[in-house]
């Protein structure tokens, strides 16, 4: 293998890791700030100016706290749970195309760790593994609330994966490729999928909320009924990993949503730029879209109350899946007409 390529990818991976963690850390801060603003409060403002050192203070607190393992817990699985959750949350970002090509030191650097030609399937693969972190952690705690949280999490994630997959298939049909790079490129020039598939976007967005365990679908960890759900027994940095994983997966799902529906790094008038300027601008635009969706997800959390579990299942199976299937069929028919399948 080319050594330069290896170094390039390694730098990208490390950078991506740091950016993901940084954004996740500041998401916690921003979430608290936003909650405060919505409730006419100030929010954290003591650590540093405007409280911007709050994530660091929280991290230090997490590290300093007592790391407790319940007596009857399955020791290895108890440690494995948060590890899997964090791993699957982080690994999804490896196939996200972050911008157009960069030209440095006479090399073309692709701002993507791995261009899988089955990128979107990889996303679904990692999502489907993501449930194991919660399940294993919840089961290994040997606590009934944790177990309830784990069972809820798994049934919720499996149910919403279906509607999510079907709505993603619609997008795959639109762009004719499974690779995320191709999907982004097919939306060049304001051909964003959101204009063609608003219903599909709504279904996908709701499912993304459910998959990342965000409110109003945060039943696996609802504090009022399950006293924290799957992470009831967790403390210290293991709890920190669970919470962090949630924010990382929120970041990644915001990225996936903006790739699938909002043109990824495309922006109007991008043909006027070229080379490294274009690359930088595209990365900035992409991150702006990601931050917007993170904001929307948080905004929803502080607006809409939590679902009841039967309502959740009803919404998933009897509303979203039929809508997604009908939308898929309509899209298929339109594409078939468009390509003239019925003419000959």
């Amino acid at each position: 293998m080319d050594t330069a390529l290896l170094i390039e990818k390694l730098v990208l991976v490390v950078l991506l890791f740091l950016v993901s963690l940084g954004i996740a850390a500041y998401s916690t801060y921003f979430e608290r700030k936003l909650a405060a603003w919505i409730q006419d409060r100030v929010g954290p403002d003591r650590a540093g100016p405007f409280g911007i050192l709050q994530p660091i203070a929280d991290g230090v607190k997490m590290f300093m706290k007592e790391d407790f393992t319940p007596k009857n817990a399955d020791r290895w699985l108890f440690i494995l749970g948060p590890g899997i959750a964090m791993f699957t949350a982080l690994i999804t970002s490896s196939i996200v195309p972050w911008g157009t090509d960069l030209y440095l030191f006479g090399r073309t650097i692709v701002l993507q760790v791995a261009d899988f030609n089955i990128g979107i399937l990889f996303v679904f693969g990692t999502i489907s593994i993501g449930v194991y972190g919660i399940m294993i952690g919840g089961w290994a705690s040997n606590n009934k609330y944790s177990l309830y949280g784990a069972i809820r999490a798994s049934s919720q994630m499996i149910s919403y994966e279906l509607a999510m997959g079907i709505s993603a298939i619609t997008i795959i049909m639109m762009s004719g490729s499974l690779g995320l790079t191709d999907i982004v490129k097919s939306q060049h020039g304001m051909n964003w999928n959101i204009f063609y598939q608003p219903v599909c976007f709504l279904v996908f967005f709701i499912c993304a909320l459910a998959e990342t365990n965000r409110a109003p679908f945060d039943l696996p960890e609802c504090e009022s009924e399950l006293i924290g759900g799957y992470h009831t027994e967790y403390s210290s940095m293991k709890l920190g990993l669970f919470l962090f994983a949630e924010y990382v997966s929120m970041f990644v799902s915001a990225a996936i949503i903006s790739i699938l529906f909002f043109g990824g790094y495309n922006f109007p008038g991008m043909d006027h730029f070229s080379g490294n300027t274009l690359a930088l601008l595209s990365v900035l635009v992409f991150f702006a879209k990601i931050f917007f969706f993170i904001f929307v997800i948080m905004w929803i959390r502080w607006t809409i109350p939590r679902f009841r579990f039967d309502q959740l299942m009803h919404l998933g199976w009897k509303v979203l899946i039929p809508i997604a299937i009908i939308n898929l069929m309509l899209t298929g028919i339109v594409i078939a007409f468009h390509e003239g399948w019925f003419l000959n």
């Binding site: 936003l34 603003w37 919505i38 006419d40 409060r41 100030v42 905004w299 502080w302 607006t303 809409i304």
Partner: peptide
């Protein structure tokens, strides 16, 4: 209804807060 609720919370973001430090 959801849009209505979201709009209300959005309005509150720009309101003056009542906290006394």
């Amino acid at each position: 209804a959801i849009w209505g609720g979201m709009f209300i919370t959005l309005k509150h973001i720009f309101k003056k807060n009542h906290t006394i430090k």
